[in-house]
Design a protein around this nucleic acid. Structure first.
Length: 253
DNA sequence: TATGAGCGT
């Protein structure tokens, strides 16, 4: 009984991206590091893709509740609309992309939105790309449904029991961390390696979420010092930021 | 190294 989806590495992207890098009009590769100095203009030689998007409107207003927008996070400062559009344009279903920027500094806030031509297309991208490596090779896509427009609630009606995992090696990814725990604990919901947005590199720690509190407790001791990639993990309690469903009464979505 | 997580015109 293997899970059907699997990691789904989406290899086309990296290949396509590398191919596009050969071409003269491609997007700019990441510049070294402007440090504190903000870039003068964002991709000065790049045309904003939404402008050239075909005015393909569906004449049916009835499906206004159809959610077609994804939220994308963990973006680095140089990842602009042009970059995102190239990541998803080959799906043929990416309508427009937008990176949210600080109004004063024009710096990317590290997240954006991807609007697709259909909800199915958006979901397909979410399933295929989420957690896979980004074309810059340094980090993973972090995708989610955009909120507020999300008619479907998170299939998450159970609380999370989270642990802190430190001393992670530099090559440990969300997926890797998840699998290390999932092989021993059935209730693992997922894991997240914290990324430093300025460098795009891991901060060396992360979090693992369990659905079962007893497994969380067991993992706190059993996984202490267990090797993950090349380093033994250091497990600790996680400060639960979200208090979940308990003690929340009368809160309506 | 150490406690994520960020939702717009």
């Amino acid at each position: 009984m293997m899970q059907p989806g699997g990691p789904g590495m989406a290899p086309h992207i990296a290949q396509q991206y590398q191919q596009q890098q050969q071409q003269p009009y491609m997007m700019m590769p990441p510049q070294p590091q402007p440090q504190t100095q903000p870039p003068q203009m964002w991709a000065p030689n790049a045309q904003p893709p939404p402008q050239s998007a075909p005015p393909q409107q569906q004449p049916q207003p009835a499906s206004a509740d159809e959610v077609r927008t994804l939220w994308i996070g963990d973006l680095q400062y140089w990842m602009d609309e042009n970059y995102l559009y190239q990541c998803f344009s080959h799906t043929g279903e990416c309508g427009s992309v937008k990176v949210i920027r600080n109004k004063q500094t024009n710096q990317s806030e590290g997240y954006g939105f991807l609007e697709f031509t259909s909800r199915a297309g958006a979901e397909r991208v979410l399933q295929t790309y989420n957690g896979t490596i980004m074309p810059n090779g340094g980090q993973n896509f972090r995708l989610n449904w955009a909120t507020f427009s999300s008619g479907e609630k998170r299939h998450d009606d159970s609380p999370d029991y989270t642990i802190f995992v430190g001393d992670l090696a530099a090559d440990v990814t969300d997926y890797h961390l998840t699998e290390v725990f999932r092989t021993r604990y059935n209730s693992v919901k997922g894991a997240k390696v914290v990324i430093d947005r300025t460098t795009g590199r891991t901060k060396g720690y992360g979090f693992v979420r369990f659905a079962d509190e007893s497994e969380q407790m067991r993992a706190m001791t059993e996984m202490q010092g267990v090797l993950c990639s090349t380093r033994p993990m250091r497990i600790g309690p996680a400060s639960n930021k979200n208090l979940n469903t308990q003690s929340s009464k009368g809160l309506s979505l």
